Computed example of a mutant assay.
Amino acid sequence: MAKNAPTREELRAFFVEELELPDETIAYETEFAADLGIDSLTTMELMVQLEKRYGVRLEESEFAALTSVKAVHELLTARLDAAA
């Protein structure tokens, strides 16, 4: 059974926790590289955690487009809603 897509707040909280950043540092529109200085390797590690947590498979080619909490939320929502 597919898991429900995370809410915006659940996903934002995931990034706060995983990146060990102050809560106010990450907003829904926050860009990982531009606003937080996160490199592609760290982004990939985060996506692997999300794959495990939500039971989805993300293609490597999709990682480049996952540049913000918003982008990740939209992709997860689309994937998990399609699987439901």
Rank of each mutant, 00 (worst) to 15 (best):
M1C: 01
V48H: 06
H73P: 03
L46I: 06
V16C: 03
L11E: 04
K3E: 08
A78Y: 06
A27H: 08
E10C: 03
F63R: 02
L19R: 00
D39C: 07
T42S: 11
L36Q: 10
I38H: 00
E60V: 12
G55M: 04
S40W: 10
A84Q: 14
E60P: 11
L19A: 01
R57M: 07
P6C: 03
Y28L: 11
L36D: 03
E74K: 12
E51H: 02
E31W: 02
H73V: 03
I26G: 01
E60S: 13
E20F: 02
L41A: 14
H73W: 14
V48N: 02
E20R: 14
L80C: 06
A84M: 12
E51K: 06
E18S: 09
L75G: 02
Y54D: 08
F63C: 07
K52A: 13
E62P: 04
E18D: 11
A13T: 09
Y54C: 01
S40L: 11
A82Q: 13
L80G: 01
K52Y: 05
M47F: 12
A71Q: 07
A82M: 07
A27E: 15
A83E: 15
A83H: 03
A84P: 01
K70V: 00
L80Y: 07
R57H: 12
L75Y: 01
S68Y: 10
K3R: 14
E51N: 05
E45I: 02
L11F: 04
A82H: 00
T67C: 00
R79A: 09
A13C: 00
T42F: 05
L19K: 05
M44G: 08
E20N: 13
I38Q: 05
E60A: 12
L50F: 09
P6E: 06
L36T: 06
L46T: 06
V72R: 07
T77Y: 09
S61T: 14
E17R: 12
E18Q: 14
E31L: 12
A13L: 12
V56Q: 08
V48P: 01
T77A: 13
L75V: 05
N4P: 00
L58N: 10
A82S: 15
Y28V: 13
E17V: 00
A2Q: 00
L36N: 01
M1Q: 05
G37K: 04
T25D: 14
L46K: 07
M44Q: 10
E17N: 12
E74M: 09
E29A: 10
A65K: 13
K3S: 05
M1T: 05
A27K: 15
E29G: 06
A71W: 04
T42V: 15
R79F: 03
K3L: 15
L11N: 04
L80A: 01
A34R: 10
T25F: 11
L76C: 10
Q49P: 00
F32S: 01
E74Y: 00
V56C: 06
